[in-house]
Amino acid sequence: FDIYVVTADYLPLGAEQDAITLREGQYVEVLDAAHPLRWLVRTKPTKSSPSRQGWVSPAYLDRRL
Rank of each mutant, 00 (worst) to 15 (best):
F1D: 07
F1L: 10
D2A: 14
D2N: 11
I3D: 06
I3N: 04
Y4K: 01
Y4Q: 01
V5D: 01
V5N: 02
V6D: 00
V6H: 00
V6C: 07
V6W: 01
T7P: 01
T7E: 02
T7H: 04
A8M: 14
A8G: 07
A8F: 08
A8I: 08
Y10P: 02
Y10V: 10
Y10H: 07
Y10D: 02
Y10K: 03
L11C: 09
L11Y: 15
L11D: 12
L11I: 15
P12K: 06
P12D: 07
P12H: 07
P12C: 06
P12W: 07
L13F: 11
L13R: 11
L13G: 13
G14F: 12
G14T: 13
E16T: 09
E16V: 08
Q17H: 13
Q17M: 12
Q17W: 13
D18F: 09
A19T: 10
I20P: 04
T21F: 14
L22Y: 01
L22I: 04
L22R: 00
R23P: 03
R23Y: 15
R23A: 08
R23C: 08
R23M: 12
E24W: 09
G25E: 01
G25N: 03
G25T: 02
G25I: 02
G25F: 03
G25K: 02
Q26E: 15
Y27W: 13
V28I: 04
V30W: 00
V30K: 01
V30T: 02
V30D: 00
D32A: 05
D32W: 11
D32E: 08
D32C: 07
D32H: 07
D32N: 11
A33R: 14
A33Q: 12
A33S: 13
A33T: 10
A33H: 09
A33W: 08
A33N: 14
A34R: 15
A34W: 07
H35L: 08
H35W: 06
H35Y: 08
H35C: 07
P36G: 06
L37I: 07
L37C: 09
L37N: 13
R38T: 05
R38Q: 07
R38H: 07
W39H: 01
W39D: 01
W39M: 01
W39R: 00
L40V: 02
V41P: 00
V41M: 00
R42Q: 08
R42A: 06
R42M: 06
K44A: 11
P45L: 04
P45K: 07
P45M: 06
T46E: 10
T46S: 11
T46W: 07
K47C: 09
K47S: 13
S48F: 14
S48L: 12
S48Y: 13
S48Q: 12
S48R: 05
S49P: 02
S49Y: 10
S49M: 12
S49L: 11
P50D: 07
P50A: 08
S51C: 04
S51L: 06
S51E: 08
R52T: 11
R52L: 14
R52H: 10
R52Y: 11
R52S: 10
R52A: 10
G54H: 05
G54I: 10
G54E: 04
W55F: 09
W55N: 02
W55D: 00
W55Q: 02
V56Q: 01
V56R: 00
S57V: 05
S57H: 12
S57A: 07
P58V: 05
P58G: 02
A59Y: 08
A59W: 08
A59T: 11
A59M: 12
Y60K: 03
Y60E: 02
Y60I: 10
Y60W: 06
L61C: 02
L61P: 00
L61F: 03
L61D: 01
L61V: 03
L61M: 02
D62I: 12
D62V: 14
D62P: 01
D62K: 14
R63H: 13
R63S: 09
R63C: 07
R63T: 08
R63Y: 13
R64P: 15
L65K: 09
L65E: 15
